[in-house]
Design a protein around this nucleic acid. Structure first.
Lengths: 275, 275
DNA sequence: GGAGCCAACTTGTTCAGACAAGTGAACGAC
DNA sequence: GTCGTTCACTTGTCTGAACAAGTTGGCTCC
């Protein structure tokens, strides 16, 4: 429980300003609670903290890392939001799963996701045309009805095989940048980030199933009417400015979406169809 | 910024123990940060804080509610985890959406969800049989291979129309309770909670698409091969003990799943299929 | 008028301490 | 032996203070 001021790392508190960083090479950010979270995540992934087992108590962790309880709580809250651990008042925290969750970019970008899981992503632009936004597109992109958008049709390959048809509407203010990209561009979002400094920060996703239309079927090499998993999503900047509205259709069996929830945090929502 | 000790509600801090509760009837729990969160949620829902607009600053809110900044931060963190607001260091928080998200129970229980959105849920038990768990069932339910489980086949109706086929494996320790339920039981989870005190606390969901098999087609009144949206999920107690593992297949178009994410919190994950 | 700088503001991180509330195990009574 | 009760432990909530880091708008200087 006794703090040892000599072993503090950096950042925050009433710590003396410039401070020598001991045992560096911890990868990146010296944000204390993320360090602790990363260490716990590692212990869970390695099996040192088995699924169903208990985590050390908060005061335990606080003492071990010579951090305050608040910082430790922020660390475990991070893991809880990832669905790795659960907690209830009065009892020790427990490990729920040992796999790690993917990052934001890997959900918003097909290329980033594929790379992250060790598959090779391919892409083929089939068409890029400017046209006025439909009512839905204008709504999703927070644009005035009829504003010009860039409509893109792309076929996406996973390890050489076509798995997804992507129909995206890019907002007017990024259209020029997307138009200028080479035809074999792997990741539009990556290119936008590097070329124009436009970085996606928020996303909303709608997931349902539908039958393949004739165009879908032709492009994916399946029969018309075959089941498709559809993920419609809108990406927005940190300032909540919508970037793109996309309709992605995956061949059945090619991908599965997964999500954890708990009584305290429910990210996923189910909605009834129109009809 | 000046605290007014007289207007404090209850709970926490070095507040004098027994304290008169002014302006009661605020519904339930007098947890300060939830109160603030609820008020903000209301302002967002009513349009007082419009989508794209800015929230008051933390110190503003702290002063207005005579709460500490930490408590206010907990309140806005709650809204952020619901995808209602976004934040970035240095700038004021912004409103991302105005609709509220559903509760945990509404995602885990078909009946609770249907009721919550104003539809009428129907249910028909088609079969309930005890049999040894398959390898996957044993794994998902944390049971020894071959342990006896209760396999249930149910047809679910929404407003009288069949929309979903549910195939659930209940763990041995709840099997008897489920077996004893009446054939017209609306919600197994509700009945379990009331009858046996077994309450679901955690869930994990896998979402994909597949073609209807002959049994699916017959029950849902659609053609074999029609697209279905499949939601497989496992529910667990607060102590992380798995209760049920279920395979729910929705008719295409009947439901849509939605999820929000941000660069700081990504609940949803995409996984490649086996093939 | 435009470019660059700065200062006020706002969110992010951290600390130390206090009380409330739920859990679980050991203990004692019947 | 079984059933309550008590108590140590653990998580939940809250306070007040401080420094770090990013944003924004206005001001100055050219």
């Amino acid at each position: 429980m006794v703090r040892d001021p000599g072993t503090r790392h950096t950042a925050g508190g009433h710590t003396p300003p410039a401070h020598i960083r001991d045992e560096g090479a911890n990868g990146m950010g010296t944000v204390r609670y993320l360090e602790i979270a990363a260490a716990l995540r590692g212990s869970i992934a390695s099996g040192e903290l088995p699924v169903g087992g208990q985590l050390p108590s908060e005061s335990d962790l606080a003492a071990r890392w010579s951090a305050s309880r608040g910082t430790v709580r922020q660390a475990v809250a991070t893991l809880a939001s990832e669905g790795l651990i659960g907690s209830r008042q009065g009892a020790r925290r427990i490990v729920l799963r040992h796999e790690r969750r993917h990052s934001f970019g890997e959900l918003n970008s097909f290329a980033q996701w594929a790379e992250g899981v060790g598959h090779e992503a391919g892409s083929r632009f089939l068409s890029r045309v400017r046209r006025p936004a439909t009512a839905e597109e204008a709504d999703r992109l927070h644009l005035a009805p009829g504003t010009g958008i860039l409509a893109v049709l792309r076929l996406r390959l996973l390890d050489g095989e076509p798995v997804m048809v992507e129909r995206t509407a890019y907002a007017d203010w990024v259209a020029a940048a997307v138009e200028a990209m080479p035809a074999d561009c792997r990741s539009v979002m990556d290119a936008l980030a590097e070329g124009s400094g436009v970085v996606a920060h928020y996303g909303e996703h709608l997931i349902d199933a539908l039958a393949a239309g004739s165009e879908d079927a032709r492009l994916l090499g399946i029969r018309r009417g075959s089941p498709l998993l559809r993920q419609r999503h809108v990406s927005a900047t940190a300032a909540a400015r919508p970037i793109e509205w996309s309709d992605d259709r995956y061949r059945a069996g090619s991908v599965t979406f997964s999500v954890s929830n708990s009584a305290v945090a429910t990210p996923l929502e189910r909605r009834a169809g129109d009809r």
